[in-house]
Design a protein around this nucleic acid. Structure first.
Lengths: 323, 323
DNA sequence: GTGAAAGCGCTAACAT
DNA sequence: ATGTTAGCGCTTTCAC
């Protein structure tokens, strides 16, 4: 390569890395040679000397079943690959759904195989978090990591605000007995949406009005059954995800309740399923693509040693037929 | 590391790579030292000398909108990361949705940055295919790549058979005017499901009975409208994906047709949405996880220079309420 | 069975 | 502004 351009290896390297102190003629010669020979740098060799890998890991901390269904995640993936590709970095995917997976990810990170980590739906108390902190690896999360909000920067939708908007809407519609089906409380979507809900309902959000789900459709269905059992005269329910809401609709249908006449149902996410259910779901739209973009932007900033602050983006109430 | 174990670097390498000619005592010493020092091999250095990268690329050739909604894809991803992680390989994700993306992937492959490629929903005639062939890179596809069935091994569901089963079922139910909404014809799901359908309906599958969709819900909805316009007395429709079928249900509802009384609707995939629609979809279940497993198994076999044959797995008719 | 040593392709420090 | 050179950490001959 250096021969083909008639310059030294050092100069080739300088051109390829955009370093200063290269004459125009040398640069032209190198670029021409690169084009002619189809030369591509060997990343392994570069990585060996720079000790940067040019790749970042996307860590999915999710029990298997959710991965099948989560819409957020594919958006983030798309945005992340695109945005990283622009900087010639690549995205490595790892799943830390169980101990074995977490171990693998930890080994991988410890091995210095990645320059940074993108944390997806990491639960509070995940041992991986200590590992990352100890390794001093730049990391950002999509959605706040509960309890680590100040150490791990994140971008997220305004979970609390979105939930509050939905709760207020249901109240404004004249609903009096409003229940909630939450997500797992160790996820921000689980606890923050609940917080938003109770901040509006106050003491009316009694213990028997709240049932915890697991973000699956089947989970939403059984949670709804339980809620109906707890509170037979329920007239509205706020479900923390559209998928669970779809399950809740089925349970309500099976119980002979009309939606929205007898029971109003509010979802969260505005995922594809929201407009497919019957009745179509009134829900809270999350600006997923924007959240994903911001998440990646934060990581890139971190890699360049810039200061970063968490980003919280506004949600939007989408009114359809279920409430 | 070599010092810590009291042996030479060469011996350490032999132990770590499971090579022969290592005494038990040396092996024990090395393993102990590894455990004590927390040593992890430097992949870049290894890669530099072996010229294997230890990673494989998953190439998603999909216009952006589908990625949001495709269920197959996350299953494959999960299976692939797990299965590759078992062999200490990592999965790099690339999206080749447009020319820019394709270029990036091509550059990446040409640069020898991956040991193999996992092709997802690659369309017939994708220029990337030539690139891969030229580079001699081991590659397998999920779903047949139309026109390259014999050069690119693949694992897939029996698209044709599944479609045939659905068509036969609709006929057996006494339906006479059966339409179809297909996927894009340059995808195996598009053309093979159509083939299965016409193989049963024969000349009854006239041109105006077939409308092409794009696998999106909105596309299914508009395709259904068009179909109703073409054939007002339609009494059944086979839709090539559940998501499009959800759209079709909405169009039918809007047109005042009852499902299944007036029009029977059959879907394909048995994805999460199939049981969420009302009425719940009668559909064709694809063994996604199995397909994903087989796809990865094929690639691994290929990496080890074994002979591989395409794998086609049986589908199953799932009868619910829509037909 | 094991050590010594060459070298993978690159970057960065040092000369010039 | 550019060439020269010393490694980066590993695997792999080649001796022994």
């Amino acid at each position: 390569m250096a021969d083909a351009a008639g310059v030294s290896r050092g100069t080739v390297s300088r051109v390829l890395n955009g370093k200063a102190n290269v004459s125009l003629s040398a640069e032209t010669a190198v670029r021409r040679a690169v084009a002619e020979t189809g030369y591509v740098v060997n990343r392994a060799a570069r990585s060996l000397v720079t000790s940067r890998t040019g790749s970042i890991v996307m860590v999915l901390s999710e029990p298997q079943e959710r991965l099948f269904e989560d819409p957020n995640f594919s958006v983030l993936m798309r945005v992340a690959t695109n945005q990283l590709a622009d900087r010639d970095m690549s995205l490595v995917l790892m799943i830390a759904g169980d101990d074995g997976g977490r171990d693998r990810v930890a080994r991988y990170l410890r091995g210095g195989h990645a320059d940074g980590a993108l944390l997806i739906s990491t639960h509070a108390g995940d041992p991986l978090l200590d590992e990352i902190e100890r390794a001093g690896l730049p990391a950002v999360a999509q959605g706040a990591v509960l309890g680590r909000e100040s150490v791990i920067p994140y971008a997220a939708a305004d979970e609390r605000g979105g939930a509050r908007a939905m709760a207020e809407y249901l109240v404004d519609q004249g609903r009096r007995k409003i229940g909630m089906i939450t997500g797992p409380l160790d996820t921000p979507g689980g606890s923050l949406r609940l917080e938003g809900f109770t901040s509006v309902l106050g003491r009316k959000a009694g213990k028997q009005m709240i049932v915890h789900g697991d973000y699956t459709q089947a989970g939403g269905e059984s949670a709804m059954r339980k809620l109906l059992q707890n509170v037979p005269d329920l007239d509205a329910v706020f479900v923390a995800s559209d998928l669970m809401a779809a399950g809740a609709l089925q349970a309500l249908h099976a119980a002979g309740r009309r939606v929205p006449e007898d029971v109003a149902v509010g979802g969260f996410d505005d995922s594809a399923i929201a407009s497919a259910t019957r009745p179509a779901l009134t829900t809270v739209r999350q600006p997923l693509a924007k959240v994903a973009e911001e998440t990646v932007r934060l990581l890139i900033a971190l890699l360049e040693d810039e200061e970063v602050e968490p980003v919280v983006l506004p949600t939007e109430l989408i009114i359809r037929d279920s409430a």
